[in-house]
Design a protein around this nucleic acid. Structure first.
Lengths: 184, 184
DNA sequence: TCCATCCGTTCGGCTTGACGAACACAGGTC
DNA sequence: GACCTGTGTTCGTCAAGCCGAACGGATGGA
């Protein structure tokens, strides 16, 4: 979240336009903005209005945020038990980080291995974050602290990550995938 | 991706400011913009420049895109076998959509149930997309068509979604979580 | 009641983004 | 060579965003 998104926007506009293979003139016409405006934006001068940038995003066929945020990466495999184990506070669970939230992406990916006994109770973290959990094997209790839900294999739950939530295994060998989505 | 983000921005600004509990005056001062400007923006009139909106996003402690895109939900559970099955071309596999890529988010979440026999070979889809797969149960062959990798429970793989890739069960009852990340 | 202090809104001004036209340049075609 | 059509750039003009100040309203002491 740098303080000067203008250069970033310039680079993004250029990159996306290159991707489509369209000319500056074509994109400008398609978006309904003056080509002079687009030219200035791609050169890094100028502070576009939201409407202008929006029109360009539509013309380029990309989501708005693609023009305002950094770019991104190929094939990688992490074998079970190989990845960096992030938390392991109690012996009752471990979380392996599979994919960290690189700049440009908006989610972390964890593999959870849970054992009955301790409840993993998380305090709210980053405001605006959302957690998605899919149970792979076993059974567990998950969701908000004041309204947990029992889940089995293949079950899926979403809940706000910025509210107190819980995750507690009901069977030995319970595993799950956790997608931590950062909207903030 | 409506064509009039102004009303959306207005609502988002108001909502985020309410969340912080700050007054209009405070936020404006913190962001370094005139409170008159913020007032107009929250009332839906006005088409802010990127810099202005950026400053407000920083002041509110939210990512830029949070102000430009629709809001999100709360707790939701999809039981195994309940969600909409998106593809089921061959009897050899089914994909259940758990979380669709809502505007503002950047990934789809699928639960895959695979049976040996057919190979699910996907043509490249959206340029710039990336797929993350974690095997829940069973074994399968996944990755790029010309260099597949054998995976077991808990194994994780990332690969570009815009290249030809494959997913083929090696055991009956193979299940996996698929995160389709849209960077474009 | 009066005053103080906050809230958010509405009002002129200055600044700046967006536009269209004119511009310089490159690659074809005759 | 002259000519046209495309590229992307740089100008001057106009509209609009942004600003600060002045405003009406709500609250809370003294």
């Amino acid at each position: 979240m740098s303080n000067a998104p203008l250069a970033l926007i310039a680079a993004n506009l250029r990159r996306e336009r290159d991707r489509t293979g369209l000319s500056l003139t074509e994109v400008a016409k398609k978006a309904g903005v003056a080509k002079s405006t687009l030219s200035q934006l791609e050169s890094g001068s100028g502070n576009p209005s939201v409407e202008t940038l929006w029109a360009l995003a539509v013309a380029l066929g990309v989501p708005f945020s693609r023009l305002v945020e950094p770019a991104v990466p190929r094939v990688q495999v992490i074998r079970a038990g190989e990845g960096p184990v992030i938390h392991s506070e109690q012996a009752h669970y471990s979380a392996t980080l599979l994919a960290a939230c690189r700049p440009g992406t908006k989610h972390d990916l964890y593999w959870l291995a849970l054992e009955p006994g301790g409840a993993r109770e998380s305090l709210p973290h980053v405001p605006g974050s959302t957690e998605h959990m899919i149970v792979a094997t076993g059974r567990c209790l998950a969701g908000l602290v004041d309204d947990p839900v029992e889940l089995g294999p293949g079950d899926y739950i979403v809940y706000p990550g910025d509210a107190p939530h819980i995750c507690k295994a009901l069977e030995p060998g319970t595993t799950a995938v956790l997608v931590m989505e950062h909207t903030a």
